[in-house]
Design a protein around this nucleic acid. Structure first.
Lengths: 136, 136
DNA sequence: TTCGAACTTGCAACGGGGTTGCAGAATATT
DNA sequence: AATATTCTGCAACCCCGTTGCAAGTTCGAA
């Protein structure tokens, strides 16, 4: 899959096996992943520090974005419209209390909120917790 | 202020100076606080572990609730309608990127979201980041 | 008011999450 | 193939949060 190398090249990153593996893990498992998830999957091959740094690099380059959670941080692939300069993440995250998976609902946008005067919103982050279709 | 003792009593907690101080800190500073904030304010008087345990106890009793953040957890006072059994937290949290404060917008409710079939939402958590009126 | 059971605190120790410095290895470029 | 640049692994470290246990405190009953 040279798709991976292409993605890295677009973001001016050297292709290394660690970056390819992390990226393909995000692509294969479609849900949001924590560092621990990645370490569980790739930890035998790469040092934890390298995985941390890969996540940080991907964040800075706009390849992944943070997903808030009531217990620790997760990361998910950005949609194609994201870049280092500009992120677009007004979609909703759904965390299933049964299976524990967190997924982006890419098609759903966060509804507009009427804030009081003086508030200047920049980023929106909506986490919905409940039961997902798979666990229903 | 026997208001504090009263609150603790209602939740079947013994009145200790640490609990009174933590509670009054939440009441005085009105914004969401992290453990670090409390340790900064009360750390000379109480052990960090005691503050952690106080927060955990208050959480369990429904006196405070978690506030999501992209960098670490915070806590804020629950409205009066919360109890150990039932929490009601569909209000919005606003984090100011200038002063760093996070506040509950108690009067604003999270707008309804039309989820795809099969999703059963239970809790909603909306964090808006931007600039608050004070820093405007 | 004293006493005892139940609860709370402080201390020490621990585990996990995440970061930094640095030397050696891998990558891209000529 | 040689070089500058970047990336990785290792060691060490700090911060967050938890647990076990002994000593101290609270509160209600006698």
């Amino acid at each position: 899959m040279d798709q991976l190398r292409e993605t890295l090249k677009v973001h001016h990153l050297r292709t290394t096996t660690c970056r390819e593996d992390v990226l393909s893990t995000f692509i294969n498992r479609k849900n949001a992943l924590s560092h621990g998830d990645l370490e569980g999957e790739l930890g035998e091959n790469y040092d934890r520090v390298t995985i941390y740094r890969t996540l940080k690099t991907f964040l800075e380059k706009g390849i992944i974005h943070k997903v808030l959670d009531d217990e620790g941080l997760r990361y998910a692939l950005c949609s194609h419209s994201c870049s280092e300069e500009k992120h677009q993440h007004d979609h909703i995250h759904f965390k299933c209390s049964a299976c524990g998976e967190t997924n982006c609902l890419e098609n759903l946008h966060i509804p507009a909120v009427q804030l009081p005067d003086g508030y200047h919103p920049e980023h929106f982050n909506l986490l919905i917790q409940g039961v997902c279709p798979k666990c229903n």
